[in-house]
Design a protein around this nucleic acid. Structure first.
Lengths: 121, 121
DNA sequence: TGTACTGTGTACTAAATAGTACACGATTGT
DNA sequence: ACAATCGTGTACTATTTAGTACACAGTACA
C-alpha cells in the first residue's frame, strides 16, 4: 500500500476502463483471464490492496492494455530485466553513464539518444 | 548454486585472501564481523553454497574489501538501486538509450561517457 | 601445552513475494 | 424473470530471500 502501489493501480484501472468504454471485453475478469491471473487478484492490484505483480505479469498486463511495458514496470517500481542484464555486463561503464545523465534534463538525454540512434557509432 | 553464485564467491574469496596476505584481520570471521553478518554465512557465500547476499550486504562487503560496489553487485546478479531509480524516473528515455548502447562495443560507450562528462550538455 | 582464533557443517527461521480458490451480492442482457 | 456476467471480500499457501545460532575440529603461536 505504498505510494507507487496506488499509482500503479490507478494507472491500470484508468487505462483498462478507457478501453472498456468501446470494448466490453476489457472487464477485470476478461483481462485477468487473458493474462492468466485471478480476477480478484487484478481487482486488488488495481485498488492498491496488494503490491504490483511480478515483472512477467506486469509485462503481460501492459501487452493486454496496449501500454509501454517499461512505463508500467516503472510504475510498479521495477526495471525490465533485460535492461538490468545490459548494466550487469558492464557495470562501471553504465553506472557512470547513468549517474551522469541522471541530473540532466530530458531534452539533453533525448538529444543523446538521437545522436546514438542516428550517428555512426 | 548457479553460475554467477560461484563467480561471486570466488571473486570475494580471492580478494579477501589477497588482502589477508598482508593484513591478518581479513579473516572470514573478522570481515564478517565488520560488515555485520555471521562468519558461517560469509563462508557459505564465498564457496557458493548460498546465493549472494542482499544489495546492502554486498555493498558493505565491497567497502570492506575496497572494491567497486557496482562490480560486486553485478557479479551478484544485481543492479544498484540508485541506478534503478534513475531508470524508473524516465523509463522510456533510459530504456531506449540502454538498449541502443547494449550492442555497441566498450570504446563507443566509453566515448559517449566522456563526451557527457566533459561536454556542456 | 593450552588458549585463542580459524573456517565450516547442520539446523532452523522470519519476512517478503506472488499469487490461488471460492463464495457472495450486485448488475446486465434478453 | 432468470441466466450470465460483474467486481470484490475472505482465507489460505507455496516459494524465495536473507539470513541466524551454535557446535565442532583444525591451526597458530607464546
Amino acid at each position: 500500500m505504498s505510494d507507487d502501489t496506488r499509482t500503479f493501480g490507478d494507472y491500470v484501472r484508468g487505462h483498462r476502463e478507457a478501453l472498456r468504454e468501446t470494448d466490453r471485453t476489457y472487464s477485470v475478469r476478461q483481462v485477468a483471464g487473458r493474462i492468466g491471473i485471478e480476477p480478484s487478484y487484478l481487482s486488488k492490484v488495481e485498488r492498491g490492496h496488494v503490491p504490483p505483480p511480478s515483472e512477467a505479469t506486469v509485462v503481460r498486463l501492459a501487452e493486454a492494455l496496449g501500454e509501454d511495458p517499461d512505463v508500467l514496470l516503472a510504475l510498479a517500481g521495477k526495471v525490465s530485466s533485460d535492461l538490468k542484464d545490459a548494466i550487469r555486463r558492464r557495470p562501471q561503464l553504465f553506472g557512470e553513464l547513468i549517474r551522469e545523465l541522471r541530473d540532466l534534463p530530458d531534452h539533453a538525454v533525448l538529444k543523446l539518444v538521437r545522436e546514438v540512434r542516428d550517428g555512426d557509432w
